[in-house]
Nucleic acid binder design. Structure first.
Length: 212
DNA sequence: ACCCAGGGTCATA
DNA sequence: TATGACCATGGG
């Protein structure tokens, strides 16, 4: 990767941080809630995810063993507002049963990052972005999350065409930046904040107009 | 009445 | 390997 790309990514981070400050992500109380949210937010607006998580909590179902042992239909009814509820109820259960078989969330800390990532990717319904969101925001591992916001921003910066695969975009960030979970956390959160703040896709934006 | 949102899987060619 | 269909709700 060229030094110019790394320079742009550094500058972008500084601009966004100066503009918005610390973001305190992921919006969840516990690592387990991060994981649930990561599945529920697949291709879905976060406001809808909040309703689903609230419903799970009020039903006393926002717990690993409760979800793992429930009827799929019960979970589906609770998470209905987040969309794809039949798909996601099965995905949540697959994730929770995977967690059980790994000895719970605390036990994950004894696994190395890359094997853990492969293991997560083998869970039905967990793809690259969901796995990385879990690794970064729940497990505090130095993996950069590439989501739709990040792709759009990279395209706007001229750093991507749009057809690159997930891994190559992730590698851009991970080679440009030191492997620091707190930094990756903040950076991705700022990208989302910036997008929601209304960066106009094509016109000038004083925050993301960075030169090499 | 559209359109899209913090993806992922599966079937087909 | 590369597209396309499918999953489904709520807010603009």
């Amino acid at each position: 990767m060229s030094p110019a790309v790394a320079s742009k990514l550094h500058t972008l981070y500084q601009r966004l941080f100066e503009a918005y400050g610390p973001q305190h992500w992921w919006p969840a109380e516990t690592p387990f809630e991060v994981m649930v949210g990561a599945v529920l937010t697949q291709n879905t607006a976060w406001t809808n995810v909040e309703k689903a998580i609230r419903a799970l909590r009020e039903a006393g179902m926002l717990q690993l063993d409760a979800i793992a042992g429930a009827e799929a239909e019960q979970i589906a009814n609770l998470i209905r507002p987040s969309g794809y509820f039949n798909v996601k109820s099965r995905r949540l259960q697959a994730l929770c049963r995977w967690l059980q078989s790994h000895g719970g969330i605390a036990a994950l800390s004894r696994e190395a990052t890359l094997p853990l990532r492969d293991s997560l990717l083998a869970v039905h319904g967990i793809g690259p972005e969901t796995a990385d969101a879990i690794l970064l925001y729940a497990c505090e591992r130095p993996v950069f999350v590439i989501d739709a916001y990040t792709r759009r921003l990279l395209r706007k910066l001229g750093l991507a065409e749009g057809d690159e695969d997930y891994t190559s975009l992730q590698r851009m960030f991970e080679t440009a930046l030191p492997p620091d979970p707190a930094l990756y956390n903040e950076y991705h959160a700022l990208i989302v904040r910036h997008a929601k703040e209304g960066c106009n896709e094509s016109g000038d934006c004083r925050h993301c107009r960075v030169e090499a």
